[in-house]
C-alpha cells in the first residue's frame, strides 16, 4: 500500500470499508424504547381527546336551577344590574322624591270617581249558560 500518493478515486472508494462497518453495526431499537414511544403516543392521544372535550362541558354545567336562571338573564353581570335596580326601587319607596309622591297621591288619594264602562251592554252571563 502506498499512502503517500495524492488522493485518488481509489482512496475515496476505500471509505466504503468504514461505511460498511458502520452499516453492519446493530441498530435495532430496544423493546423498552418501543414501549416508551408507544406510551408517549397513547398519552398524547388522551391529551388530544381531553382538549376536544371542554366544548361539551358548559352544557353539562348549566344543569342546576340557579345556573339555568342565571344563563337565562345573562349571567352574573345581569344580576348586578338587577340588584342595583332593586336597591333603587327600595330607596324610592322609603324616601320618595317629591315628584313621585305627588303623582302617587294624585292616583291614590284624589277622591276621583271610578267609572265602570260596560262595553257590551247587551251581553249577559246568562246568555253563555243558555248557548
Amino acid at each position: 500500500m502506498n499512502w503517500g500518493i495524492p488522493m485518488t478515486e481509489r482512496d475515496l472508494d476505500n471509505l466504503d470499508v468504514f461505511f460498511d462497518a458502520a452499516r453492519r453495526q446493530a441498530a435495532d431499537p430496544s423493546p423498552d424504547l418501543m414501549q416508551r414511544v408507544l406510551d408517549n403516543a397513547l398519552a398524547e392521544q388522551q391529551r388530544l381527546a381531553a382538549q376536544a372535550a371542554p366544548q361539551a362541558r358548559p352544557q353539562r354545567a348549566a344543569r342546576g336551577l340557579l345556573r339555568q336562571l342565571l344563563s337565562a338573564i345573562g349571567g352574573w353581570p345581569a344580576v348586578a344590574g338587577l340588584a342595583t335596580a332593586s336597591v333603587t326601587g327600595l330607596w324610592i319607596g322609603v324616601n320618595p322624591p317629591a315628584a313621585v309622591s305627588t303623582t302617587a297621591e294624585a292616583y291614590l288619594n284624589s277622591g276621583a270617581d271610578t267609572y265602570l264602562v260596560d262595553l257590551m251592554p247587551g251581553f249577559q252571563f246568562d246568555d253563555m249558560a243558555e248557548g
Binding site: 431499537p29 424504547l33 408507544l38
Partner: peptide
C-alpha cells in the same frame, strides 16, 4: 399509534445511532 411506532421508531433510532 402502534402501527406508526412499529414503522418509524426503528428508522429514527437507526438513523440516530448512525
Amino acid at each position: 399509534a402502534r402501527s406508526l411506532n412499529l414503522r418509524l421508531t426503528p428508522r429514527a433510532f437507526a438513523q440516530a445511532m448512525r
